[in-house]
């Protein structure tokens, strides 16, 4: 009786169903749009606005925001050298996003690869690799970043390297824990009974189950790394002028806090909004990538759309 075919809609186009699920969660939808805007700024901003953003203009020094008389570029005000803040924020998006993305991608790839080996193999590596995570975790990470960047030169590559190393344990531990659990699941056993090779089991059966968790963490971690980079830049041991990131902009505005609050306020707001969007998107991802929970979004989307 209960053994009749359930009525489930045929699979829609992949992209369309993703968009529908995104639409079902309004805050995440707005967050995704905002992140797209940031991404576009990061990709083409410097090419378009670099000249404007670096042109000093004595008449625009610490120009107050919301004053359109000096042109729309100064709508958010000008900095201490009269450079338009809006243009500078757009240009700074590139370094900010690139460094965070570099660190996240590097730590995710290395961390999850190590985690897969540690979780799947039953040999010596399964013992050694988790200890590696313990070692990194017991470093005081930000202090370490400070000293390493102090002794090496604070270039973008070094910042990515330092941040990536400190974030490896997050992926390593999560992947290992998940793999240890997934490895014992019955569908993995079923694949082994069919004669599937280790590579096939890892990449076809285990990785797809672990990947959503990793993506969710990576989104969250992107926000974390961005904040860490901003802190380093703020302390003066991250990106150095004339290169610019949002964190550095906040630092550069600090001496003028009492007279021109907007110098630090706007780049700070850019950081907050971006991290907030990443957090919202990460929450959405957690639901959307879970086959058992996805229906919430699928159904919600239809009702609203």
């Amino acid at each position: 009786m209960a053994d009749i075919a359930p009525v489930t809609p045929a699979e829609k186009g992949r992209l369309r169903s993703v968009l529908a699920m995104l639409w079902a969660d309004k805050p995440a939808f707005v967050a995704a749009i905002f992140l797209c805007v940031v991404l576009v700024c990061a990709l083409i901003g410097p090419a378009l606005l670099d000249a404007v953003a670096t042109k000093q203009n004595l008449r625009g020094r610490n120009a107050p925001p919301f004053d359109l008389s000096k042109g729309w570029l100064l709508i958010l005000g000008g900095d201490a050298l009269g450079r338009p803040l809006l243009a500078r924020i757009i240009v700074a998006a590139q370094n900010t996003i690139a460094i965070a993305a570099g660190a996240v991608v590097a730590s995710m790839i290395v961390g999850s690869a190590l985690g897969l080996v540690a979780g799947y193999s039953r040999g010596r590596w399964a013992q050694i690799i988790p200890r590696l995570a313990d070692v990194i975790m017991s470093f005081p990470s930000l202090l370490l970043a400070v000293i390493v960047l102090y002794m090496l030169e604070p270039s973008a590559a070094n910042i990515i390297l330092v941040l990536a190393i400190t974030r490896i344990p997050v992926y390593l531990r999560t992947t290992r824990a998940e793999v240890l659990e997934v490895r014992e699941r019955m569908f993995v056993q079923a694949a082994r009974v069919m004669g599937a090779s280790d590579a096939r089991i890892v990449f076809r059966h285990i990785l797809p189950v672990v990947l959503p968790t990793l993506l969710t963490i990576a989104t969250l971690d992107f926000a974390f790394v961005m904040l860490a980079e901003s802190s380093l830049s703020f302390l003066g041991i991250g990106i150095q002028a004339p290169e610019v990131t949002w964190g550095l902009m906040v630092a550069q505005g600090r001496p003028y806090l009492t007279s021109a609050w907007w110098l630090s306020f706007w780049p700070g707001l850019a950081i907050i909004l971006t991290t907030l969007s990443l957090n919202l998107l990460s929450n959405w991802l957690r639901v959307a990538l879970d086959p058992q929970q996805r229906w919430r979004l699928e159904m919600g989307g239809r009702k609203n759309g």
């Binding site: 019955m186 009974v193 069919m194 189950v209």
Partner: peptide, 14 residues
């Protein structure tokens, strides 16, 4: 070949 107890778990959900 083998057929497992709980088909919910023995079929890869993805």
């Amino acid at each position: 070949q083998m057929v497992f107890q709980d088909p919910t778990q023995s079929l890869n959900p993805r």
